[in-house]
């Protein structure tokens, strides 16, 4: 299996996080593969978002380790993890509401050195790159709009665009299909597939099974904070443990 899927991009070892008595993530050991579209599925409350937050440094895990491209990134500051090439979006779409659509992208670019912070934000080459990404997600006509003025679906695309602007090797998407219409879900799926073909690794969290089954090369199934199955979409779909977790048998 591992040979087939190639190198591991992201790996966790015994990752744990509890809130009070709730073991949101419970001794989770997982592997996600470089150059692939990886999926993480599981019923609501199974700890997927908490897992994301531990991996991206937003929450400090109680125990365990996170390795990204063989570097131990546990306890790194979130911005350092982002700069190491691991980008993410949030479950409830988060953009900068009072920045323009274009500025939402420009702000995601890291200045090459601290002095560059004194320069103006609208560097021509960056603006051009941002416009390219906006055109790609279909938001180029909205670049001067404030993010709060565009629709929820457009904000989701904007969030993805901003994550891409940072130039990540791997992007983690938390429920990209949540709360948007079927047409847009399809559009996001196409985007992810295309970007992956160009070399970006993905880790997608969803509980929309159908969306995931067509999209993912490799799926990890979570239940009560830990993986209960891993494999191709077809494999995990037939796993009795997965059926039990999903159907509550």
């Amino acid at each position: 299996m591992t040979e087939e899927l190639g190198a591991v991009a992201l790996r966790t070892e015994g990752l744990s996080k509890s809130f009070g008595g709730v073991h949101a993530v419970d001794n989770a050991t997982t592997e996600f593969y470089a150059g692939r579209i990886n999926g993480l599925i599981g019923p609501n409350g199974s700890g997927k978002t908490t897992f994301f937050n531990c991996v991206t440094g937003m929450i400090r895990p109680d125990a365990g380790h996170v390795f990204y491209r063989d570097r131990d990134i546990t306890r790194w500051q979130p911005h350092r993890i982002a700069r190491a090439g691991l980008g993410r979006t949030f479950q409830l779409c988060r953009v900068f509401p009072r920045l323009t659509v274009l500025d939402n992208l420009l702000v995601a670019v890291h200045p090459p050195h601290p002095l560059a912070y004194l320069g103006r934000p609208r560097v021509a080459s960056l603006v051009e790159r941002a416009r390219g990404i906006l055109a790609r997600v279909g938001l180029d006509h909205l670049e001067t709009a404030e993010a709060r003025d565009v629709s929820y679906g457009q904000q989701k695309l904007l969030e993805l665009a901003a994550a891409l602007m940072a130039g990540p090797d791997m992007v983690m998407l938390d429920e990209p299909a949540g709360g948007v219409n079927p047409a847009l879900i399809e559009r996001i799926a196409v985007l992810v597939t295309e970007l992956n073909a160009e070399g970006t690794t993905f880790l997608v969290v969803e509980h929309n099974m159908e969306f995931m089954m067509n999209l993912c090369d490799h799926v990890v199934v979570f239940d009560r904070g830990a993986p209960i199955a891993a494999g191709s979409a077809a494999e995990v779909q037939q796993n009795p443990l997965v059926l039990e977790a999903y159907l509550g048998v």
Partner: peptide
């Protein structure tokens, strides 16, 4: 009007989000 100021405004809007995009908040 600088990149510094733009990043500060991003912090004002959503600090976690800013961090997740690589801004050293």
């Amino acid at each position: 009007r600088s990149r510094f100021g733009q990043a500060l405004k991003a912090i004002r809007e959503d600090e976690d989000k800013a961090q997740s995009l690589g801004i050293p908040t």
